[in-house]
Simulated assay, not measured.
Amino acid sequence: MNTTNATYRFINNTSFVMGNRKNAGKTTFMNWALNQIRKVEAPAFATIGIDGESHDQIDGRDKPSIKTEPGDVFITSYPMLRKSSGLFKVEKAFQIKTPLGQLVVAKTLRSGTVELVGPEYNEQLKHLIDFIRQELNYRSIIIDGAASRLTPVSAIANSGFYYVVNIDRRNMKKALEQMQLLSVSAGFEMASQDDNAFVIEGALTPGKLSSIPRNCQTVVINDLTAIFLNYEQLQHLQKRVIIKVINRPILKGYVAVLKDIAQEAFSQLYMSKGIRTELILNPYVHQ
């Protein structure tokens, strides 16, 4: 992937960064993506809930800092601005309270590192991003998502997500099956009112498979985040019915961070699995 493609994939887009597990490399990818945007314009960025902290609040591991440069706009809280080494202008304070303080949208005046704090609810995130887009006119936005929560992607119009997968020899088989599952699910057609379908409320779990009528031809779920099946179970279901979705988050690509695995060998294996989603391998060498 050359620098031009790497840069312009993020311009004029809202992109979420998701991951297959904690410490998958989401924050590192986010910093890299922000640097790509800065080659063209100042980015805006945010997180879902609490992120960017120097130590993971669950297991205590060191985490990469979120770097901010003059002109950047981001969402955090007042206490986190005071902790930062940078200098900022508060564009607007919102009546959204978190355990780490009231949320604000700030603009960077002097570079530094910052701990991001975001809203808990999708509606709040949409409100904040609408302000950044409409009032501040920022168009290239990166949102650091939770490791397993994809639902916020549907809350932001015309957004998509990159899925960071940390892969070694021990988890490679499971990771590839997960990538197959997500790629297939991202391709489901949108449901329409004309569909004579069986609607599944909430999660599509193995336990709900027996509730699908035998003569059913179409099943409707909310979106790919509702699928709690493994790849084999999903394949078996697709032989019986057509699966459609109410919301369709856009899967923009997989970011595979490989450990002790040759890139060429993994690429060939990836293609052999029939996965057609764009694969971005170890992108940080393209800084």
Rank of each mutant, 00 (worst) to 15 (best):
K107F: 02
L116G: 08
Q95G: 13
E120I: 14
R169Y: 00
A147W: 12
S111D: 02
Y163V: 00
D168E: 09
E115M: 15
L109C: 04
S140E: 00
T108I: 06
E123D: 09
K97F: 11
L176N: 00
T108G: 06
V90M: 07
E177F: 10
S159G: 07
P99M: 14
D130N: 15
G101Y: 13
E91W: 03
K83G: 01
V105D: 02
L125H: 04
P79I: 05
E91T: 06
I156P: 02
N158D: 15
F161R: 05
Q134E: 13
S77R: 09
M80I: 00
N158E: 14
I129C: 07
F131D: 05
A155Y: 03
F94C: 11
H127D: 10
L100N: 15
A146K: 01
I132T: 09
E120P: 00
Q102H: 11
I132K: 07
N122S: 10
T151Y: 04
P152T: 09
S77P: 07
L81W: 07
V153P: 03
G101V: 13
S148H: 13
Q102L: 09
Q134N: 15
D144G: 01
L109F: 04
Y162F: 15
S148F: 11
Y162K: 04
E177R: 01
T108E: 05
L136T: 02
M172C: 13
L136F: 07
I96F: 10
V105M: 04
V105N: 03
K126F: 02
S140D: 01
L100P: 12
K89S: 14
S111Q: 14
F94G: 11
A93G: 12
S111M: 07
F131V: 04
Q124V: 08
K89W: 01
E123W: 00
I141S: 05
G86R: 04
G101P: 13
V114R: 09
E91H: 04
P119H: 06
T108A: 13
I167H: 09
N171A: 10
L109W: 00
V164T: 12
L81K: 03
V114F: 12
F88H: 13
A175P: 00
V164A: 03
A175H: 00
S84G: 09
A147C: 06
Q102P: 05
T113C: 15
A93E: 15
A93D: 09
K83Y: 03
E115H: 09
I96S: 09
R170S: 12
V164Y: 02
D144V: 01
R169M: 04
S85H: 01
F94H: 10
I141P: 01
G118Y: 10
E115C: 15
L125Y: 03
P79H: 08
M172Q: 14
F131L: 10
F94R: 09
L103C: 11
V153F: 05
I141H: 01
P79Q: 08
T108M: 07
P152N: 04
L87S: 14
S159T: 08
V90A: 07
F161M: 04
K92T: 08
P99V: 09
I167Q: 10
G118F: 08
L150R: 14
S140P: 00
